[in-house]
Amino acid sequence: MISEQQKQALFVEIHKAIEEATVLAIERFSLGQEADLAYPPNGGLTEKEKSELTKLSINSNQKSALRKIIADAASYPIFRFLTLLDGVSDPEGYEGDWPGFTLQSKDDNFEDSDTFLHDDMDSAYWEWRKIRPSSDWKLDNLDDERA
Rank of each mutant, 00 (worst) to 15 (best):
F79A: 15
I70F: 12
A21D: 08
S113Y: 04
A65Y: 08
G96L: 01
W137M: 07
S123T: 08
E111L: 15
R146M: 13
P77W: 01
A9F: 09
F116A: 10
G96V: 00
L37Q: 06
E27I: 04
D112Y: 07
N42H: 15
Q104T: 11
A21C: 12
P99K: 02
Q8D: 09
G32M: 02
P91L: 02
A38P: 03
G43R: 04
D122Y: 03
F29D: 02
N59L: 06
L85Q: 07
T54W: 01
K68G: 14
E4D: 14
S3C: 03
S3G: 05
A17E: 08
N42T: 09
D122E: 08
F101S: 12
W137Q: 08
S60A: 13
D112W: 06
L142C: 06
D36A: 11
L82E: 08
T54N: 08
D122T: 02
S75I: 00
K138F: 07
R80F: 08
L103H: 04
S75L: 04
D144S: 07
S75F: 03
L103V: 06
I70R: 02
A38V: 11
I69Y: 05
D36L: 12
G43F: 01
S105A: 08
L10K: 13
K63D: 05
R129F: 02
P99I: 00
I2E: 15
A73F: 04
S57L: 09
A73C: 10
N141K: 14
L56G: 03
M1G: 14
L10S: 14
E95R: 05
S64F: 07
N61M: 14
M1S: 15
V23D: 05
L139T: 06
D136N: 15
R132G: 01
A74T: 07
S105E: 13
G87S: 02
F79M: 14
P77L: 01
I78A: 09
E13N: 15
S123Q: 10
D120Q: 13
D97G: 04
S30Y: 04
P41C: 03
Q5D: 13
S57W: 06
D108K: 09
S89D: 09
I26R: 02
I2R: 14
E34T: 13
I14A: 11
Q8K: 11
D143S: 12
E20W: 08
A124E: 03
N141S: 12
Q62I: 11
G87P: 02
L85H: 03
P91F: 00
W98M: 01
E92H: 10
E127A: 00
R129E: 06
S135H: 13
L45K: 11
L56C: 10
P40F: 00
E47S: 15
L24S: 12
D72Y: 09
Q6S: 13
A9P: 07
A9D: 14
Q33G: 01
A9E: 14
I78L: 14
Y94D: 00
D114A: 15
A25D: 04
V88P: 00
S3Y: 03
T115H: 08
I26G: 00
E127S: 00
